[in-house]
Amino acid sequence: MAARSRNLETAVESIEHELARATDELAFVRSRDDDRRSDPENDPPTARRPPGDPSRAGVDLDRTVARSDRGRFSAAPSAGTSTSEGGRFDRFTVARYNRTMGQVHARRRTVARLVLAAAALISLGLVTLAVLAHEPEPPVWLAVLPVIWMVPVPFFVLAFRGTHRVLRAVQFVLPEES
């Protein structure tokens, strides 16, 4: 009896859930139409719709999804209720991203050469100073201290190599709207 009751509760829950999603879907479709009429900039709000018959939206997706949960795919947030005003995130456009990544990509070789040249110059200067200083042999315990400076060297070398490898191998630019 208890099991049957639980099953019944689950079924009711599922139906309520589907009803909720259907309501959301309806609200979305209606508000999308409203948006189309009032705000052409919003067109086309395709993000929540795959290509195909709109009336089938949220139904003909993944067939492995439990029947009672299929409606979830149409759980698109009700359109535009709160997003008519762009926040600070409205500056985050593809064009701006592409400009930034394009510049990073374009100057990667120059940056790599400058890094190596500057590193070599600084190191040369430091080594020259150390040689010219003619410092006496320190006690062993003191001499090992600067070895601690060497600990992160492999990490920095790998980071430098990896950064330039990924910049060379990956085309970061995204397609822009025509």
Binding site: V127, P136, A143, W149, F156
Partner: peptide, 17 residues
């Protein structure tokens, strides 16, 4: 302190870091 000749070795990598 004076770390002595060890600096001739560490100096090679310090610039890069």
């Amino acid at each position: 302190l004076h770390y002595g000749p060890i600096l001739e070795l560490t100096g090679v990598f310090t610039g890069f870091i």
